[in-house]
Design a protein around this nucleic acid. Structure first.
Length: 268
DNA sequence: CTTTCAGCCTGACGGC
DNA sequence: TGCCGTCAGGCTGAAA
């Protein structure tokens, strides 16, 4: 389940090996992803130089000479630098061979991801909220956007129009640290508490990115599993277990079709 | 306008 | 042992 820190870690891991290199060959073995992989993509990108890599929300963007490739890892996708001689594994759907001899492999069992080519921008990026680690995202923004909203705070902060890149894991952890119940109405939370929440969202995402960075060198040959696997999760996946603060069993509920674990004693 | 919900997909896991 | 149901979850688009 790649969340924003995993996407950022992937970007930093592949960037040195892909940037400034030319696409020698792109092979699509299974193009039925979230959206069908752009028709004729192999012929289009062949021979183009990769000018730069960037990230917006959970999308990776490869800027080529005549357009850009937008890649999403979906629920189960990963992007790794592979040894050209290494055999393709099951669910390795796309390979991008670079002129420097490196090969980028896209692996995605559930095929919820995306590889889309465009010469003039990607509409999916048009209506996204701010990046969580910038000053554009603040408690004040959460407060202003939420007035008179009845939606529960957890789906509110997971909405890409509010702020991008806050998935179920980090939303749960940030709400726990802030002492806010995930089902509290977004419109009934004070600016002071939203300041706290925005700070914790930044902290939890930022530290996960830092930890992901420690596995970067595994990107060439390995299968480094970065991010939240190394992070201490206090509530996510711990329903019924004792709260790390008050020892009472953690509660579980469903909000917006997503499981939500919280402490009914520490979160109000 | 806001909110909810089905659907996309495979693998892991528990019950029988 | 294997079969079946359930869950995991980001994102879109349609319905309420």
């Amino acid at each position: 389940m790649p969340e924003l820190p995993e996407v950022e870690t992937t970007l930093r891991g592949i960037e040195p090996y892909v940037a400034d290199s030319v696409v020698e060959r792109l092979s699509v073995y299974n193009g039925s992803l979230r959206w069908p992989v752009t028709q004729g993509i192999s012929d289009i990108v062949k021979g183009q130089r990769v000018l730069s890599l960037s990230r917006r929300a959970k999308y990776l963007l490869l800027q080529l000479e005549h357009g850009s490739m937008m890649i999403h890892l979906g629920m189960s996708g990963s992007l790794r630098l592979a040894d050209v001689n290494a055999e393709r594994r099951k669910h390795d759907h796309i390979e991008m061979h670079m002129s420097n001899g490196k090969c980028l492999r896209y692996h995605d069992p559930r095929r919820f991801g995306a590889w889309l080519w465009s010469e003039n921008g990607h509409s999916q990026l048009d209506h996204l909220g701010p990046e969580p680690l910038t000053d554009e995202f603040s408690g004040e923004r959460l407060f202003d956007l939420s007035r008179k909203r009845k939606i529960a705070v957890k789906p509110f902060i997971m909405d890409n129009k509010t702020v991008v890149g806050v998935g179920n894991i980090y939303a749960s952890e940030a709400l726990f640290r802030s002492g806010i119940r995930p089902d509290r109405a977004a419109g009934r939370i004070s600016l002071q508490r939203y300041d706290l929440l925005a700070g914790h969202i930044k902290d939890v995402l930022g530290s996960a990115i830092e930890r992901g960075g420690t596995t970067l060198r595994d990107f060439v040959n390995g299968n480094g599993e970065p991010g939240y696997f190394q992070q201490t999760l206090r509530v996510y996946g711990r329903g019924g277990q004792p709260c790390s603060h008050c020892e009472k069993p953690l509660s579980e509920m469903r909000l917006g079709q997503r499981s939500s674990v919280f402490c009914s004693h520490c979160q109000r």
